[in-house]
Amino acid sequence: MESAVDTAQKKNRSGVVDRGGSWLTPRRRRRLAAWGPVLTLLLLMLVLTLLNSKFATAANLKTVANQSAIPLVLGVGLAMVILLGAIDLSIEGVMVAAMFSIALLAANNVNDNDLGVLAILIGLGIGASFGLANGLVNAYLRIPSFMVTFGTWFVGIGVAQKLLGRQPPRIDLEARSWVIEQRFGIQQMFYIALVVVVLGAVVLRFTRLGRHIYAIGGNEELAAQSGVRVRRVKVTVFALAGMLSGLAGAFALGRAGVADVTASQGRLFTTIAGVVLGGTLLSGGRGGVLQSSVGIVIMIVLRNGMILAGVDPFLQDAAEGGIVIAAVIAMNWSSRAKLRVVA
């Protein structure tokens, strides 16, 4: 009897038994978990600096910054979707669909269009409409988001393949300057990506939409009963994520100058792994855009390290798949429970 009371007293709010004098008190553990991704990133950078003299050079760090722009933008959208407890697998498809649309509407070598900024806005709109479709089908037809977005992934690729005529459209230098023009040695799209990250963090922290996203991710039924318009929030979030995939498509087009159906290959893995590594749980409700952005940068640095080390590119892809599995399992480990059924 007495021992049972003892154990009950030693349990803290999170239900973990406190082992008396252990250094890792639950509070410290939570704090460590919050700063874990940042520590991981610093550690990783330290290791790479020691292993390879080319890593910590200004030129290489600028490359890392340039490479981060697209994944960061994708990560903001995906983090919001994952905070809902849903997933968006359509990133790559939406990205190339927007990429081809913009390429054919901006000044290019295939047709006479030259819509300038309007082309980019239409591209973002196309991304947003893919997201809107994802959200509407998920929320109103009640189909799991992984299934819906898995379908739209291929729809997006089909659209891009259809738009690809005899030759891949190449856009004029002028139409891509907003992406690749350099400031302080780093391409402009990196700064745009930073703005998107900050905006995403502000929306999540300070707006009603943001609070509703966390509420739905935490407990959807409870949120609905408290008057959150669950469907509307879901549709909005998917549309935003789609728009950001469109922006990523615009960046990719600006970077390469030419639209390519395979331009988005592998983006999904980097983004999911990054978002989850940053501590945004797949089950929803916990995490955020800033944490996920740190996770994304970890993935980019890791990739950069593998490239510097001369790892075979195909093997790098395989490794990223493995990292996705490892990250998801590691972050989910503490929520395991007996008789819990996960499909």
């Binding site: 997933i87 697998l89 992984f146 592998g266 999904l268 893995f269 999911i272 797949l282 892809d317 395989a318 990223e320 798949g321 493995g322 990292i323 996705v324 599995i325 998801v328 399992i329 989910n332 480990w333 929520s335 395991r336 429970a337 819990r340 996960v342 499909a343």
Partner: peptide
């Protein structure tokens, strides 16, 4: 790991 099967096998898709 009680982790969604689509997630594990999506990683598997990348690996294989």
């Amino acid at each position: 790991a009680q982790t969604a099967s689509f997630m594990i096998t999506l990683g598997g898709l990348g690996v294989w």
